[in-house]
Design a binder for these strands. Structure first.
Length: 213
DNA sequence: TAGGCCATCTGGTCCT
DNA sequence: AGGACCAGATGGCCTA
């Protein structure tokens, strides 16, 4: 699953967006275009997703079809022009100053670049969550941990490990004893993971035990 | 069908 | 000035 991630550290992603000073059209090179394509986003995420409210709402292209679907870009550029006008009108009608722009970075371009950075940032957060999931013991049959469940379980796991260290006992013996007696840790960690899966303390301990065998 | 989860967009704020 | 970070809004997908 991890192999599906692309390297978003490459600056070329952002360089895909540029402003063509020779015309009034906003240009997007294929690399930049991909980032507004929901199909690519699905490939970046290991889990099923999600809408795309991006600049190209009609762009539902699989990765391999990009080269043969460049025409919609021109249409989208026209649509962006309308959007730009609407945004300006909105500012004027509400008595607000126009959205910030600079000579070389129109608002639209700035906004799209910021969206790309934000997506990249969220991808890095998600990859960190994936890494964290790999360190939290769960049963194989348990379904994919949500982000909140991952955090809660990680807190509980750390609390348990801390208790084991403080006990000075062999981890396996400590876990076995807790499994029999029921855990009464002092850390008051949040064991309940949305009350759905992986929330059972018993399961957690059994899971933990599995890691020792 | 309601609720949970998630990705994305967006504007504001802070930092470099 | 531009990027990072954050939180709110929105809409799609899935499940009970």
């Amino acid at each position: 699953m991890d192999e599906m991630y692309l390297d978003f550290e490459q600056e070329s992603v952002l360089e895909g967006l540029y402003w063509d000073h020779g015309s009034t059209d906003f240009k997007v090179q294929p690399e930049g275009y991909l980032l507004d394509c929901p199909s690519l986003a699905e490939q970046l995420s290991p889990w099923p997703s999600f809408p795309c409210q991006a600049i190209f709402p009609d762009a539902q292209l699989p990765l391999t079809d990009i080269d043969t679907h460049m025409l919609p870009l021109e249409v989208s550029a026209d649509m962006d022009s309308s959007l730009e006008e609407l945004l300006e009108e909105e500012c004027l009608s509400q008595g607000r100053p126009s959205r910030p722009t600079s000579a070389h970075q129109p608002y639209k371009v700035q906004r799209q670049a910021a969206n790309v950075r934000e997506r990249r940032r969220m991808l890095s957060i998600n990859s960190a969550f994936e890494e964290l999931r790999g360190h939290v013991p769960t049963f194989p049959y348990e379904k994919h941990l949500s982000k909140i469940d991952t955090l809660r379980l990680a807190i509980a796991y750390i609390a348990l490990l801390s208790d084991i260290l403080l006990s000075g006992r062999h981890p396996q013996a400590y876990v076995d004893e807790c499994t029999k007696a029921g855990y009464r840790g002092e850390k008051k960690a949040a064991w309940n993971t949305s009350g759905k899966q992986a929330g059972s303390l018993q399961h957690f301990y059994l899971s933990l035990r599995q890691s020792y065998y």
